[in-house]
Design a protein around this nucleic acid. Structure first.
Lengths: 208, 208
DNA sequence: ACTTGTGAAACGTTTCACAGCG
DNA sequence: CGCTGTGAAACGTTTCACAAGT
């Protein structure tokens, strides 16, 4: 529907962070080949990605960094705020709360859920933790549309079912399993075990 | 050189985990369409990926789960053990140590590094922590070839330089920046901020 | 001379479709 | 039959190459 590919969205998110840094550092104008060098892509690809943004640069001066960052934001963030909920407040879950909680609150992690009664009711890294049983109701009440899954593999499908029941529309899945969810729900897998194996594999295919 | 794509390697890693689970659960034989359904791909893609493995199935019974898992292992793991080192023992770093440390030690995280002197010398989740200054020497001595980067964005490039100096051949990068490293080094980016923005974006492109 | 924006070519990945086999 | 293995087609993504702007 959006016509814009997953890869393009991911790169635009990276461009925006870079541009905000440049604009903050007093670098007002920037060329596609500079963005390309700093993000590890080609100038042509950067320009192709920017076509979707509808922000036009100048042939002589390139792009206005602050303006382009804002235009990317309009595309990526939409109008209203978006909220996410974390499921699984273990080692990884707490690290994610700290990571996502720290200021750059593009998407707010508004609540967390855990099965362990010792964690429910507590506030961890500024985020209140509820029992998993309350998940569908609380998600719907708060109108949360992104779920972040940081539970053990064995519990991932049950937790995903809870998120679907709570009517989230996207899931960021850190569990090393493929979730079974309705077609209409977007799933982004962050499989760290696979990523490490991949790195180890390609390490071996290299000159020593 | 290897002729096998990054995507294919990532999927093979997922297939293997699945197959080990099946074999352990007494499911001796499995068809490509079953692997496909459980991993969310198509049967044709599964068979295409398996072509690189060189393990042949039977038309009537499909693949031997245990044998196929082992064959994938031969391809992915190579001969000797592989070791990784973690840089950055903050919230995320400790979570990664717990995550990667737990038994399924396909790649062993053998040591960790941190700039904070209160952390150096300690053993965290079974992994000894050293000062970053010692990084290049210790990496070379131990023959470590994968670095896992879990430091703040502002320190990521310096830490990457240390890993390169220590002659790692691949880096698993959790920092939200593009690293500048020699061509010969494989970099796998795990940008969680971008992943969350991506999930939020595609959540919006959906029926409510 | 340098850029941007973009049609068209090149390249990579996935799916189709079917021969061959048990 | 329903399966595997695979050439060929379809599709998606990136790069090339150049017209047009400054």
């Amino acid at each position: 529907m959006s016509g814009i590919s997953e890869k393009s969205v991911a790169r635009l998110s990276v461009y925006r962070r870079l541009l905000e840094g440049l604009a903050g550092g007093g670098d007002a104008q920037v060329y596609s080949h500079e963005i390309a060098r700093m993000t590890g892509h080609t100038p042509a690809l950067v320009r192709r990605d920017l076509m979707a943004v509808g922000f036009t640069g100048s042939s002589s001066r390139g792009y206005d960094a602050a303006g382009l960052a804002k235009a990317i934001g309009t595309l990526l963030d939409g109008s209203g705020d978006q909220m996410a909920a974390l499921v699984g407040v273990g080692n990884l879950g707490r690290a994610l709360l700290a990571y996502f909680g720290s200021r750059h609150a593009r998407v707010e992690v508004a609540m967390a859920f855990d099965a362990d009664p010792r964690k429910t009711g507590r506030v961890i890294h500024g985020c209140r933790c509820y029992a998993v049983e309350q998940m569908p109701v609380r998600l719907r009440e708060a109108g949360i549309d992104v779920g972040v899954l940081a539970v053990p593999a064995s519990r991932a499908q049950a937790a995903a079912d809870g998120l679907v029941d709570g009517e989230v529309r996207a899931i960021l899945n850190f569990a090393p399993v493929r979730l079974h969810v309705p077609e209409s729900i977007f799933v982004e897998n962050m499989d760290m075990a696979t990523a490490l194996e991949k790195a180890a594999f390609f390490a071996r295919q290299r000159p020593a």
